[in-house]
Simulated scan of single mutants.
Amino acid sequence: MPWVDAAISIATHKANVWIDLSGWSPKYFPTQLVEQANSLLRHKVLFGSDFPLLAPERWLHDFGQLDIKDDVRPLILKRNATTLLGLAAQ
């Protein structure tokens, strides 16, 4: 998707901008999104399933097939959201 590069750029530059992964299956994530989620933006990427159009089970299955680092998976699936929403201990 052409907007992915813009989203990565903005999220990198702006402290209050996060990337939500809802709306598409992880199997279609562009390489640059996976690379940035594994590195610079690991604390700024959020899980999203786009239910009911994309069931969480399917999303999680497809996400499991991605080359996401083991220490980054829990960040994307939960910890980043709890931090963003102020639910995590600082």
Rank of each mutant, 00 (worst) to 15 (best):
T12K: 14
Q90F: 04
V34M: 07
I68A: 11
D50M: 06
P74S: 02
A6R: 14
D5G: 15
D5T: 15
N80T: 00
G64S: 05
R42P: 00
L21R: 03
H43I: 12
Q36W: 12
L21G: 06
L77T: 09
L40F: 01
V72C: 09
K78Y: 12
L53I: 03
Y28T: 15
F47C: 01
F47D: 09
L60P: 00
I68R: 09
Q32T: 14
P26T: 05
L66V: 15
V4T: 06
H43E: 04
Q32H: 15
D67T: 04
R73D: 02
A11P: 08
F51H: 10
I76T: 06
N80K: 01
A81V: 13
T31C: 14
S49H: 07
H61K: 09
Q32N: 15
I8R: 13
Q90R: 01
V45E: 08
N38C: 11
S22Y: 02
S49I: 12
A6S: 13
L87G: 00
V72L: 10
S39W: 01
D62C: 05
L41S: 09
I68Q: 10
S22A: 03
K14Y: 15
D20M: 01
K27P: 00
G48I: 09
L21K: 02
K44S: 12
F51L: 12
L84C: 08
S25Q: 09
L33K: 01
H43T: 00
N80E: 08
T83H: 03
K14A: 14
R79D: 15
S22Q: 09
L75N: 07
Q65L: 13
A89E: 00
F47G: 00
D70C: 01
L40C: 04
R79V: 00
V17Q: 13
W18N: 13
N16C: 04
S9A: 15
A89V: 07
A11L: 11
S39Q: 07
L66W: 13
L60Y: 07
L77G: 07
Y28D: 12
A11V: 09
L84E: 13
P26W: 09
S39Y: 09
P52N: 06
V4D: 14
P74L: 10
N80M: 01
W59Q: 02
E57Y: 02
D20P: 02
Q32A: 15
L40N: 11
A11F: 10
K14F: 13
D50G: 10
F51Y: 15
A6H: 06
F47K: 01
D71H: 04
L21Q: 02
A6T: 14
L46G: 03
P74N: 08
K78I: 04
R42T: 01
K69F: 06
Q90N: 10
D62Y: 01
G48H: 00
D67V: 05
I10G: 03
G23C: 10
P52A: 07
F63Y: 03
R73G: 07
E57Q: 00
